[in-house]
């Protein structure tokens, strides 16, 4: 007989007891990723609420493929970062490659993002794509997003491998969150 999945409950304001700040650097010594070849990038963003106020107690996790487009390859694409007093998070990683989609589809390079926080009963999930990437035009997930809101999933470059994607939980410019 089927037992439904356990109910999620909020991570609350004190989840930092499981914060290990070094996990935000996927290229840190001892990560196992040091020897993997690829393009070094940072992914930074600010999380705000419906009033535009910073979410200062957020837990951000990322999951991404390696530069080879594999989730089970040499690169371990998991990171965790606490938001700071301005609601900011920052990950250091390698740019993921294109990933197989369903059927014969190809997904544009992207990083899956999960946000947990006080006031979020369950984490919300979104993706960071890379603005200007040719494969974005045919990405099967981006294609499901109405054009007016697609920009909320597009990280913007600011040079030197730095990419920025702000996350708005509610209100004007609300991020597209995915039901996965």
């Amino acid at each position: 007989m089927l037992t439904p999945a356990t109910a999620h409950q909020t991570a609350g304001p004190y989840w930092h007891m499981i914060d290990f700040p070094e996990w935000a650097d996927l290229l840190r010594a001892g990560s196992g990723n040091e020897g993997v070849e690829g393009e070094r990038i940072t992914l930074t963003g600010r999380i705000t609420d419906g009033d535009g106020a910073p979410v200062v107690d957020g837990l951000v996790e990322i999951w991404q493929a390696g530069p080879d487009g594999r989730y089970d390859g040499a690169f371990h694409g998991f990171g965790r970062c606490a938001t700071d007093a301005e609601g900011r998070f920052r990950f250091a990683t390698l740019k993921p490659g294109a990933v197989p989609g369903r059927g014969n589809a190809i997904q544009a390079p992207h990083i899956a993002i999960a946000v947990f926080a006080r006031g979020l009963m369950r984490h919300v999930v979104t993706r960071a794509y890379f603005a200007g990437e040719a494969l974005n035009a045919t990405d099967p997930v981006l294609g499901l997003v109405e054009e007016a809101r697609r920009g909320t999933l597009l990280a913007q470059p600011s040079g030197g491998g730095a990419w920025t994607l702000d996350i708005r939980l509610q209100g004007d410019g609300e991020t597209v969150f995915l039901d996965v």
């Binding site: 009033d51 993706r127 996965v180």
Partner: peptide
């Protein structure tokens, strides 16, 4: 639960077909 008031998305979540991104894990 008061903290949900300004933190819950107002748009419905966008249902997507699960891909390797969702079916694989760290």
């Amino acid at each position: 639960y008061g903290s949900t008031r300004k933190r819950h998305p107002k748009h419905p979540l966008l249902r997507i077909p699960q891909t390797l991104t969702e079916t694989s894990a760290p």
